[in-house]
Design a protein around this nucleic acid. Structure first.
Lengths: 147, 147
DNA sequence: CCTACAATTGCATATTTATTCAAATACAAA
DNA sequence: TTTGTATTTGAATAAATATGCAATTGTAGG
């Protein structure tokens, strides 16, 4: 495992177990774990991990991982299976076995990653409407996690 | 309703229907809706609404309303719930409470303003297909009249 | 009306985060 | 090994966001 990957993992760990308000603070915590980097590098790491700085409602900020499903994508490599998904313009159509469409659509909805805005299902067809701003590749990956 | 509340509402609406990358951009959109403020004030509004700037995975940022589940945990007060309308390409998706989608879709259909060509409803999701040639803003307004 | 207090705002600036660019490092192929 | 290419990084800086403070506006109670 490369140093960088280890560091990204460490960042995830810290974010999940401690209240981190800014990057300087996170830098210090990383230092105690043996990772000495600059704010510039940390900023890039945070971007790659899709970590966001959120308002905590009092008067502070907290860094958080956005969504458990997105979080897994960097460390856990999974085989790329592309089921019967096909794009048309900004829409995606998924063909299922008869009767399965609503069930699968419901699965997608309930764990909906941010890439997916909504689904509408018939009997063996699901129409998936992605949010704007995502690439087809990312959307397909997101969907593939449920199939 | 105070001007400020109206503005907060407008911000929620914009955030949910458009891809906003930074506060300057949001300032401009607010200006077109008649709210002229400075970045300082917008920053405060965003803080109050607990809106967060997230990485979108490509190379940009998006402002998003917080995850409702996180919201509940440390705050008694929630921002006003704006009807959940979101655009994706030339389509509009409306999220409703479970079981309400068909009813609302029917309401929209029967009073259909010219902006709206058709609707398709599932259980808690309505897909709205607008006529060509209308601006998002006008379509959103037309739909808002039914919610 | 006035007065006192709270809420809201803009300006200027502080703070925080992102990015440019060049250097360093890792990696693969020969 | 050496060469060529891609990745990672820090220093400096740009860009974006937050905030202290004073001025303004709103608001309730006389």
């Amino acid at each position: 495992m490369s140093v960088r990957k280890e560091r990204l993992d460490a960042i995830c760990g810290i974010i999940q177990t401690e209240v981190i308000c800014n990057q300087e603070e996170l830098l210090k915590r990383l230092e105690t774990k043996g990772f000495t980097i600059t704010q510039a590098t940390l900023s890039r790491d945070i971007k790659q991990l899709k970590i966001a700085r959120m308002h905590d409602g009092n008067d502070n900020y907290v860094y958080r991982l956005p969504d458990p499903s997105l979080q897994a994508s960097h460390s856990t490599e999974r085989p790329k299976i592309h089921p019967n998904i096909e794009f048309s313009g900004n829409l995606i159509v998924i063909k299922t076995r008869p009767g399965y469409a609503m069930g699968i659509a419901s699965d997608i909805d309930s764990n909906a990653p941010h890439e997916i805005l909504a689904t509408i299902a018939g009997d063996d067809t699901i129409l998936v409407i992605p949010r704007e701003g995502y690439k087809r590749e990312n959307i397909a990956e997101a969907i593939a996690r449920f199939i």
